[in-house]
Design a protein around this nucleic acid. Structure first.
Lengths: 330, 330
DNA sequence: CTGAAAGCGCTTACAG
DNA sequence: CTGAAAGCGCTTACAG
């Protein structure tokens, strides 16, 4: 394995100089610099990041903690984080925390990640967070007290969709949540839904809660749609916690003889890539995943490299009206 | 930051002994071992993997190269690879090579990954592969000459589905490929399709090729379905290169007034999670992603740690008949 | 069974 | 502008 020493010897300079050349320090004489580069290419020398990490006590490594790996939404943001990070010399690892959590938390701690982005709603052990803080890991989307938080404002979009649905003539609507009663109101989306429906004179508004936190979203959608079919067959529109739940919901409704949007309108949230190409395409609430992913990566790296302050940023979600919503039949 | 030295001092032993304790070497006297562990917990000492990596020249880090990140299939296998790897002390990073490829290849090389799994159909620069080989990176799903290959046998499943469709009465069928003419026959699936249809007396069999290699699968499905609607409106069944293409295809068919499965049957491949909950649910060809993911991770780690030989393994794909396939109308 | 020592491949003050 | 030297936090023979 060719190492820095060989490059230095062949170029007739010291290892320190090779280091300066590789890291683009301006203090090296041009002819020397060129000679070193020439040797590097000739020897096909590739620097060892591991060694560099040890001495700089930086890993240039960002972790992303994902819970529901079957939901494409996280991956779509992660992709953009990765794309942005790699341009600045950082790599990204996904930690799928829906299993083996202790092992993975251990791995995250030992690897000395420079940054960690949280996409989970679950709690982490205090000791884990404390350890990360002590070691200077930059945290995103944990608690606002320990780092940056990038969140969404669903107010306008929820209002717009509810008004649209109301204007179309829907008067019996439901909400399918992946939270239980307590979690629902703590969640942004739930709160917006309740407040807005209260102002719009619906005949009946029903919320279906989830109590099986291990169930994937599509399954939650199916289970709660089944309930809906029994309890509230007059419903002509249903809002779902996310697109995946909406897809599951649509299926169960169809099995129960209710076609979307002829018999019932369905609304999701997240605008995952597939929602656009479904038939009927899914009405949903979207945030700019591209923007968000890039912002997260840039903020993490700025904080690592320049010690910038943590930020709180909120993205305005947008309503995306598609085929799954239509006026109710008379 | 608490380091090994402090642990050693507080426990009244040498750093080497602390190392032996942490790595579970059996040669440490029990009472000493217990004392060291006690200090470790008390000090909340977390070993630094980076340092360990440097001295052992192992990174315990596996990379997965993914091309089409919008296709959930890769993620579903990756999830299982990650799950298996983490149990054996390895972490997994995803490199989404559909952009910035040179930067990412550089990152992969410099990070001294222990293993790299390839999910791309594209070519890599020879120099990149050579470099990895020189540095001892274990390769999977590159060329069989440089490492293990885990592939699929679609023969039986393709035959079964084609026979089913034929028995139902379909005589005009099409295939939507993400390859061009050359790639199609080189691909396992394409070859099986052509050979089997030849033996089954269809009236007309048409293959639609893709020439835009940057297009995502769902878009390919839509574009080629549009062609199919024009050129071959008598078609009553269409096989697609993968589930995502099938979903795009179904949408375009529906826009063209052809409902699935009433007017036309659609078949995908891969059995991504969502296929099961679509309405109509998608008939597809499945391989055991769980088994495959676990095998890949285990093989990589066995090769790294025990120098096991590369393997070639083939998985029998299975036909999964769902709602998107039905007899043609008279 | 355990400690002292060398070394993994880098970077970074510090002299000169 | 450049080289010699120290050191990052570990592991691993090697004595004893």
């Amino acid at each position: 394995m060719v190492t820095r020493r060989e490059v230095a010897m062949m170029a007739g300079v010291s290892e320190g100089t090779v280091s300066n050349v590789i890291n683009g320090k301006p203090c090296v004489k041009p002819e020397k610099r060129d000679r070193v580069w020439e040797i590097i290419h000739q020897l096909r020398y590739v620097p060892n990041q591991t060694a560099r990490n040890l001495v700089t006590s930086r890993s240039s490594h960002i972790g992303i903690a994902i819970y529901e790996t079957t939901n494409p939404y996280h991956m779509e943001v992660a992709k953009k984080i990765e794309e942005t990070a790699i341009k600045r010399g950082y790599i990204v690892s996904l930690f799928m925390l829906d299993n083996n959590m202790p092992d993975k938390l251990k791995a995250i701690s030992e690897r000395r990640l420079d940054g960690l982005v949280n996409f989970m709603t679950n709690q982490y052990p205090d000791e884990f967070i404390e350890g990360l803080k002590e070691r200077g890991t930059v945290l995103v989307n944990f608690d606002a007290s320990v780092g940056s938080v990038f969140s969404y404002d669903y107010r306008a979009a929820t209002k717009e969709l509810l008004e649209t649905v109301h204007r179309m003539g829907h008067r019996d609507i439901a909400y399918i949540s992946n939270f239980d009663e307590a979690g629902f109101m703590a969640d942004n989306r739930g709160k917006q839904f309740v407040e807005t429906t209260a102002a719009l004179s619906f005949d009946r508004v029903e919320i279906y809660y989830n109590h099986d936190f291990d169930a994937p979203s599509d399954e939650i959608g199916q289970t709660l749609a089944k309930k809906l079919l029994c309890d509230f067959p007059e419903a002509t529109a249903v809002f779902c916690t996310n697109d995946l739940a909406a897809i599951g919901c649509m299926r169960t409704l169809a099995e129960g003889g209710k076609l979307v949007p002829r018999d019932i309108s369905v609304i999701g949230c997240d605008d995952i890539n597939i929602s656009r190409i479904l038939y009927p395409s899914l009405t949903t609430i979207a945030v700019d995943k591209q923007q968000q992913g890039a912002d997260i990566a840039d903020n993490i790296i700025d904080r690592i490299e320049n010690g910038s302050a943590p930020v709180r940023k909120m993205y305005k979600a947008k309503a995306i009206l598609r085929e799954s919503v239509a006026p109710p039949r008379k």
